[in-house]
């Protein structure tokens, strides 16, 4: 088995269809561009009051399901890809093994919840962007990308879903999200602690890791999917992020980055639609 596993080789059964981030970003459509009417206020935040709330929640749950699979794979690869001692501390690898178990449980939980919500495994495309963040060959960058950016996103997603379940009165959804949220806060803390410890005497490496995290955070803002704006389906879970060891300044940075991603996505969509119309006219 080789070290460093490429994202396009992630093994899946025949139910799954994988797409990359660039494929999904090439889609010229965006819910952000839906017409704003009195009946249909321009809020995409995932709340039960959204008319399509159940379907949107089902789709997000499938996204969580495949995200958990990739998080499981990423944590497992960190156990394998780095030599103990010379490339990664023993204790860091133990943390990653623990995380693999946690993520395996999260996959189990997501499968059960997906069934409960009426969707099937593989019903939606799997975006492999999360594993892409787990492909760095520097363990510190990998932790910054996975444990701080990816797991930070998980905190935001689970907080939104937990609130959704609470308002809808769905006992399973709220219960499960609460448990998963506890694990994700632990995972982010692991990332924050290791980042601090390993780069204690290496400010350059720390700077590089934080820059990488910021890039990943922006990608994970999924063109506006997660931000403080009500136009984003997923909000920024400030309180739980604080618990997980993000400083106020770091949370503000992520808030800025995700708002920028939202605006950029709108601009991209406008441009992509104009291009498609032009191409169509020319053909």
């Amino acid at each position: 088995m080789r070290k460093f596993f490429p994202v396009d080789s992630l093994a899946r059964d025949s139910r799954f269809n994988q797409i990359t981030m660039s494929q999904s970003q090439a889609d010229p459509r965006s819910p952000l561009m839906a017409a704003d009417t009195d009946k249909r206020p321009k809020a995409n935040r995932l709340q039960p009051s959204r008319p399509d709330a159940s379907d949107a929640a089902r789709s997000l749950m499938h996204g969580i399901f495949v995200g958990e699979i990739q998080a499981l794979e990423g944590a497992g690869r960190t156990c394998h890809d780095f030599e103990t001692g010379t490339e990664a501390p023993f204790a860091l690898k133990l943390d990653m093994a623990r995380q693999a178990w946690d993520e395996a449980r999260h996959v189990e939980i997501s499968v059960k919840l997906s069934e409960w919500m009426g969707s099937e495994i593989g019903q939606y495309a799997e975006n492999t962007v999360l594993f892409e963040a787990a492909c760095s060959t520097d363990p510190v960058l990998r932790l910054a990308g996975v444990n701080r950016a990816l797991e930070g996103l998980a905190i935001d997603v689970f907080t939104t879903m937990k609130e959704f379940g609470g308002i809808a009165g769905d006992p399973y959804l709220e219960f499960c999200e609460d448990w998963m949220l506890a694990d994700e806060v632990t995972h982010v803390k692991m990332g924050s602690d290791w980042l601090r410890r390993i780069t204690e005497n290496d400010p350059d490496r720390r700077k590089k890791a934080l820059e990488f995290q910021s890039v990943v955070d922006k990608i994970f803002s999924f063109g506006g999917t997660r931000s403080d704006s009500q136009e984003s389906p997923i909000g920024l879970a400030r309180r739980f992020r604080e618990l997980a060891g993000f400083t106020d300044a770091e949370v503000e940075d992520i808030a800025d980055v995700s708002l920028r991603a939202l605006e950029e996505r709108k601009e991209f969509t406008r441009q992509a639609q104009a291009d498609a119309v032009e191409q169509f006219a020319a053909s």
């Binding site: 088995m1 596993f5 093994a11 944590a75 497992g76 690869r77 990653m96 093994a97 693999a100 178990w101």
Partner: peptide
Amino acid sequence: GGWIATVPELDVKMRLGTHC
């Protein structure tokens, strides 16, 4: 841990993570 990403069988994938 390394094999998790390499096995397509979902149940096996999850078990490997737990056993890891």
